[in-house]
């Protein structure tokens, strides 16, 4: 299958079990919401291509199991991410409190340059709300992150959230982006980019400056 994109990068969904990470992802990539679905065991991922600033951006979104004991597995993938969604459930105070722990794990295991965004999911469940919007705003401000309340069920703020994080990752990698722009009509370079998946992986472990990952 030919790869129809200019750049590829990885985003990671983190947050407690049951906050709706998989549902957010399904809504974003397939525009589907399944009230009946199964818990995520291990790691899964989906892809989607966005057009941002005239650049075809292929994003690979990794979905993780939320239970703490899976973190020994999922943490291995933090360092491969350029952007991270920290997701809580507005109907669960506990999941909101745990954001601090998730954020500190990200600081420890993800690359310094990683972009983060705070997401309060299940905004449609007004009656069960335990976390006020202001609390989310405040926390996001403290961490210097953007913040969205979303609903995978009603499709509220889903593409906005994913697009915003993708834009932030692009902006954070502006230098590389400019390089790409100057060479965008260069077939050789584009061909090289098509192999990028492999390159990214080999560069993921070290601080390869020229690579997107």
């Amino acid at each position: 299958m030919a790869k129809q994109y200019d750049v590829l990068f990885r985003l990671l969904l983190l947050g407690d079990s049951g906050v709706g990470k998989t549902c957010l992802l399904c809504r974003f990539t397939d525009n589907e919401f399944h009230p009946s679905h199964i818990s995520t065991i291990g790691v899964d991922f989906k892809m989607k291509t966005l057009l941002i600033d005239g650049i075809k951006v292929r994003i690979q979104i990794w979905d993780t199991a939320g239970q703490e004991r899976y973190q020994t597995i999922t943490k291995q993938y933090y360092r491969r991410a350029q952007g991270i969604f920290l997701v809580y459930d507005i109907t669960s105070e506990r999941s909101f409190q745990h954001i601090m722990k998730w954020a500190s794990d990200v600081d420890e295991y993800a690359p310094d340059k990683v972009q983060k965004i705070l997401v309060g999911n299940k905004s449609d469940e007004v009656d069960k709300r335990q976390v006020a919007t202001e609390q989310g705003v405040k926390l996001a401000k403290a961490y210097g992150m953007d913040f969205f309340e979303t609903s995978a069920f009603t499709n509220h703020n889903i593409s906005e959230t994913f697009t915003r994080l993708a834009e932030q990752v692009l902006a954070a990698n502006k230098k590389d982006l400019d390089l790409l722009r100057t060479s965008i009509n260069d077939e050789l370079n584009l061909a090289a980019l098509e192999e990028e998946e492999g390159l990214c992986d080999s560069a993921a472990g070290d601080q390869h400056k020229g690579c997107w990952c």
Binding site: I41, G42, V43, I73, S202
Partner: peptide, 21 residues
């Protein structure tokens, strides 16, 4: 190996759920 697909990415669910999913 070529595509750097670690076993943990596909066998976790296979093994832990004894293929039930």
């Amino acid at each position: 190996k070529k595509f750097k697909i670690d076993p943990i990415l596909y066998m976790t669910e296979w093994f832990m759920c004894i293929f039930s999913r």
